[in-house]
Nucleic acid binder design. Structure first.
Length: 298
DNA sequence: GCGTAATCTAATCAACA
DNA sequence: TGTTGATTAGATTACGC
């Protein structure tokens, strides 16, 4: 599994400043020609085609996907003045209509299932999930550099990390955070610290979930008032006979173990089953039960 | 200053347990 | 059937030339 670093030779380095955004890709004339040719052939290339293009150009597949997204948007744009045809939609769209199945939706719709059409679905391991959830609790909107670090820690492509955060934000909104309209959220937050094993008692992550069900791991033990206990003051302890303190403690241990392993190996192997790690911890509760609880929690 | 890469949200599909 | 990774449209921001 490759980790996209997005720093190909033809990428500009933005002055050495903190990379809140991925350095802007500068296409060569040859690359642009190849992209335009591919776009003329199919504005909705499959994952396989995008991957082939990426390989030819020595760039991450995600750059190819974004180029096609932007290209479609620009091609679709119609003049604001004098535009008409409200009944049939923008006329400029005609050539861009993706072949759709009957009943396919306007958004998120896809053509019929086809081998290699989409990227193979990623199955995140418990260790990878733990790292991501922990990071999300600290910073739900990680900047580019932080995403690259997380990608290295989890051995996932940066793009997959990015998508995971997007999905997570949309499905697990956090209180007290929100994008200010007209403001680039990427530039509006300080550099993202990587997750720490033990948040200070009062140093809870700002990204507190709004949903009581959402117990981002490090924020699990929060007995104080607030949306967490809305209508269910006994909702935590979370499960069985465990208290949140038990969970917090063991999660801390688990994270420290993972980080120690990572330091020892330079990179964390996300494929190491969590069962192999948990028994080595000094747990205040039964490892097997804890493992079951973790699976339930995730 | 313009063109466009990068990023966001929202909606949706679809694989899988 | 619910969860969640992947994809899309559309809008916006900010960087390279």
């Amino acid at each position: 599994m490759e980790v996209e670093d997005g720093r190909s030779s033809n990428l500009g380095d933005s002055t050495g400043a903190l990379a809140s955004r991925r350095p802007r890709t500068v296409w060569t004339a040859g690359q642009r020609d190849a992209l335009l040719t591919a776009f003329a052939r199919d504005p909705y290339p499959s994952f396989r085609v995008r991957q082939d293009l990426a390989r030819e150009m020595g760039l991450p597949e995600s750059r190819i996907r974004v180029w096609f997204q932007n290209r479609r948007n620009r091609t679709r744009e119609v003049p604001r003045q004098g535009a008409q045809g409200s009944a049939g939609g923008p006329s400029g769209l005609a050539s861009l209509q993706r072949p759709r199945e009957p009943g396919a939706r306007a958004r998120g719709g896809r053509s019929s299932p086809e081998e290699g059409r989409t990227r193979p679905r990623t199955r995140l391991s418990p260790a990878q999930l733990m790292i991501l959830i922990q990071a999300f609790g600290v910073e739900p909107e990680p900047e580019y550099d932080a995403r690259v670090k997380l990608a290295q820690e989890t051995a996932l492509p940066e793009d997959t990390v990015h998508i995971w955060f997007q999905n997570r934000r949309s499905r697990h909104p956090v209180c007290g955070r929100g994008r200010v309209p007209g403001q680039d959220s990427l530039a509006s937050h300080p550099p993202t610290p990587l997750p720490q094993p033990s948040p200070a008692p009062n140093g809870e992550p700002s990204g507190r979930p709004c949903n009581p069900r959402e117990m981002s791991l490090p924020a699990a033990a929060q007995p104080s008032s607030g949306p967490y206990h809305e209508g269910d003051p006994e909702s935590h302890p979370v499960s069985n006979n465990y208290t949140v303190d038990d969970v917090e403690l063991t999660l801390d241990q688990l994270l420290m173990k993972l980080q120690a392993d990572q330091q020892a190996q330079d990179t964390l192997d996300p494929h190491v089953p969590l069962e192999d790690i948990i028994p080595t911890l000094e747990l205040p509760l039964d490892p097997q039960e804890y493992w079951t609880f973790l699976l339930d929690l995730f």
